[in-house]
Design a protein around this nucleic acid. Structure first.
Lengths: 161, 161
DNA sequence: GGATAGTATTTCGCTGGCGAATGATTCGTC
DNA sequence: GACGAATCATTCGCCAGCGAAATACTATCC
């Protein structure tokens, strides 16, 4: 079995001081994520939604439909400025609502509108299909293994140092 | 051991029809790639280079320093328009050179300049460090396993249907 | 051999995201 | 209890990428 990264690495062999394994893992992850992004974008377009919109609604739902911009930004690995931009778009589309917090008036609470909840539900189906399709190549056991390894990596990256 | 995705999934448990394993794998990959992107961007900035520049130079090197825009675009999962933009930037910075092909004059050959080769070499060090740092959490054996699993996924996604 | 279809690249207008600076509010400390 | 530092969100100017249309060239077909 061969993928495009194999071909890429083969072209490289011997030409540079180069850890093929590291490069392989990294490049494959990047391409998978990029593929996923593009496939989901195409699928979600049918409901008239963009990936970043779903991503945001989804995080909001995880917070029971309400959270502050800074929390969302941190979780989505987004700059504060980028978050504001997203929320602007979502608000204009009527999917979220901004409410100035009463106890700490620096804060803004972001809430899902009914329409936002609806759209999220629709998108869930579509997205789940696309993601499952990608993972379908692996047995249940392999999925667990993969998940575990990725978790080690992410933990390492997230823990201070 | 716990990562941010664990916490995210925990918040979700029972609230939605939801394959935790699929979501876990997908989300972790996305976050790792995003992290990598940000870390590399920060590291490469020291040489005054951006990630997309390196990515392009690197592909070019893999083609022994010369390739056409369309080939590069395909390999980098980029639109033709996006590729043109990248090449414009790289050309302005003096890292690549465009040469109209003589036999088929619709074609353009993209070549690395000496400066491009130099900068690529510098960047290779930096990038390798960042990537290795990320992978360092895994034993050699685990790396092989991870790489194999990712390869299965990518192969599945790339093979027609 | 001239119209037609096809291919490679570029141009154009638009969008999401970033970094830095700004405005608004709260906290800490003396 | 007031002043300076920290915190939260937004605005601004900029940039890389996309989709669609335009441009430039080649191949095909009658």
């Amino acid at each position: 079995m061969e993928d495009s990264v194999d071909r890429h690495l083969a072209r490289w062999r011997g030409k540079a001081p180069y850890d093929e394994l590291v490069e392989g893992v990294v490049t494959r992850m990047q391409m998978l994520v990029k593929h996923l992004h593009q496939t989901k974008a195409a699928a979600l377009a049918e409901v008239g939604m963009q990936d970043f919109e779903f991503e945001t609604l989804h995080r909001l739902m995880a917070h029971s439909g309400g959270a502050t911009p800074s929390v969302l930004a941190a979780e989505l690995l987004l700059s504060p400025a980028g978050m504001t931009g997203r929320l602007d778009t979502l608000e204009r589309s009527g999917l979220i609502r901004r409410v100035r917090s009463t106890d700490d008036r620096r804060r803004v609470d972001v809430e899902l509108t009914d329409r936002g909840r609806e759209l999220w539900t629709e998108a869930m189906q579509i997205r789940a299909e696309v993601e499952s399709e990608m993972i379908s190549a692996l047995s249940l056991e392999d999925r667990v293994t993969l998940d575990g390894l990725l978790k080690q990596l992410l933990h390492n990256v997230e823990s201070p140092h």
